[in-house]
Amino acid sequence: MSFLLFQISFAGYFLAMSAYLVFFISQRKPVRRIARMIFFAAAILHTLNILARYLEAGHTPITSQHEAVSFFAWSVAWCYLSFRWRYTVKNFGTFVSVFVFLLMLLSSLASRQIMPLVPALQSWWLPVHASISLVADGFLALACIGSIMYLLQEREIKNKRFGLFYSRLPSLDSLDKLNQHCLSVGFPLLTLGIITGSLWAKQAWGSYWHWDPKETWSLITWFLYAAVVHQRFTVGWRGRRVAVLTIIAFVAVLFTLWGVTFLLKGVHTYAT
């Protein structure tokens, strides 16, 4: 049941991405409306998929690679939708839908087997810590996507060579504001995610901090984002420099999510 829902929403994201790409090239408004509707429908089905899996597994489905990445995609999709509800950024949806699709693709490649939960992980902290962290990652992903769009647009304006992006991407100012909004939501959530994680660690293993690779890397990530946010609000850093830093910091996020799991072992390795 949950797998069927997963597949349908996966297909939905694929269709939404294709429609968004068609809109991006052709700039025909009716196509965008269709793309939005498909994306929204896919996100709802995805939510149902996660609920169904929760019922099947009997615990919050953020414990295996497949579940975590799928949840990450879900949080990016809903962060984007919650965002769109407040204000629009031209063609942002195109980039977001591509990213969500790639995450779903990764998730579908991982093993879907439901793993029995290790006793250490059986706690109410699991949904709290994992979902807060992944929603934080969702907003940070949006910040990164916005920064990529900023760099694309900035390059065309600076070099005075207008290609594919100049007319299709929004103004530099709105992309920079997007970055600021996403960071000012994502960074506090990231902080909260780390705090809840350390409280859980105290409960499960007896001490707040283990210097487990995952913990170390999330701390590094946190420092990177802290630097961006700090520079932005005190010195008024903006534009290119912030965009580049945001992208670097997000690479650290991705490494924390996967690199650590595969390269360095620790208590966070989900499915082994």
Binding site: Q153, I157, P170, L172, D173
Partner: peptide, 9 residues
């Protein structure tokens, strides 16, 4: 037009 692409509003 360029000003609008840079500043938005």
């Amino acid at each position: 037009e360029l000003a609008r692409k840079i500043f938005g509003n």
